[in-house]
Simulated assay, not measured.
Amino acid sequence: MTAYYPPITYTVPEAEDGWLLKTILLRRMHVSRKLQSRLKLTEQGITLNGRRVYTSVPVQAGDVVAIRMEQEISDDILPQPIPFEILYEDEHLLVVNKEAGMIVHPTHGHYTGTLANGVVDYWRQKGESFRFRAVHRLDQETTGVLAIAKNPYVHQHISEQMIGNRVDKTYLALVHGTPAPPEGEIDGPIDRDPEEPHRRIVTPNGYPSLTKYRALESWKNGSLVRLKLETGRTHQIRVHMTSIGCPLIGDKLYRHDVYKEIGIEAADPAAGADSVIETNDPPMPAAARNIVQLDRAIPRQALHAYELSFEHPVKRRQMTFQAPLPADMRKLRERLEEGL
């Protein structure tokens, strides 16, 4: 017997009397044609007043349209008891606060130890059956808010909001220096670096990319910056902030230009903030020394997905989720305040 998730329903108002069922599904319930085709294959996938009907039939005011999706599991993800912080959960959606160093989804060479492994195990322990569907991705070392859809309808709906630029993503970053001006936009096309394909660069022939930023606090050697993504390119914030001379503190891939001028020993990020910096003659300038020490003060890029806002696909209301600044970034902020 087929097991279904709870139905998602819609009651037809007077103004839509006579509309075709498929129009209601597409324009009011926002069920994509692809998902409609999938739902038609199951007995209770699409019903009108509890009965299975063709989607070409007209509806009447007061009719109740319902869609039901089959329960799923992530057969390809090994359940593991990995702890993670939950910010919000209902029967359709899970929002978590991802920690630094955690990969979101299993990849080649990383089949275990990911957030997906932990979430699948969490659902199994609760006796629930869902397929892991991250609505968006965060870099392995980036912390913060991450949304996970519990069914294909929710995933599709939020994905469409992202494509339509109706999802607000706000990040906090600790960067070298102070952006000039302290508030503005970075409109710089991004594409792969032809010399290092794993890196991205700002290039005239790249994909349109726009980041809005505002320096919330500034100190002698760095700033706390709030950033809002208007596009979602790989490494967008890291690339854009580097392009204006304010790379993220601790970033090992997009580093300050000063590293082109100093020895590899000084560039070692694993040495620790208070370790002795070895350099060749002449001695390292004080400004360069401060940059290296700041990068050593945190083992990752100082980037945090602080806030995520979108319309809940089923509840039909705007929801905002926030994750507080993590401990390592709070500690780094204190060091900046102290003058490091």
Rank of each mutant, 00 (worst) to 15 (best):
V202M: 02
T203I: 11
P204C: 11
N205W: 11
N205S: 12
P208C: 05
R214W: 01
A215K: 01
S218Q: 05
S218M: 04
S218F: 02
W219E: 06
G222C: 11
V225W: 00
R226C: 06
L227R: 00
L229D: 04
L229V: 06
L229C: 07
T231V: 03
T234P: 12
Q236I: 11
Q236K: 11
Q236H: 06
I237D: 03
I237K: 08
V239R: 04
V239D: 03
M241L: 15
T242P: 12
S243P: 15
S243G: 15
C246A: 05
I249G: 10
I249N: 03
G250A: 05
K252M: 14
L253I: 14
H256T: 14
Y259K: 10
K260Q: 14
I262N: 09
I262F: 02
E265F: 13
E265M: 14
A266F: 00
A267C: 13
A267D: 08
A273S: 14
I277H: 05
D281H: 06
D281E: 10
D281C: 03
A287M: 08
R289C: 10
R289N: 11
V292K: 06
V292E: 13
L294S: 08
L294V: 09
D295E: 09
A297Y: 00
I298R: 00
P299C: 14
P299Q: 10
R300C: 07
Q301G: 07
A302S: 07
A302T: 08
L303H: 02
L303K: 01
H304P: 03
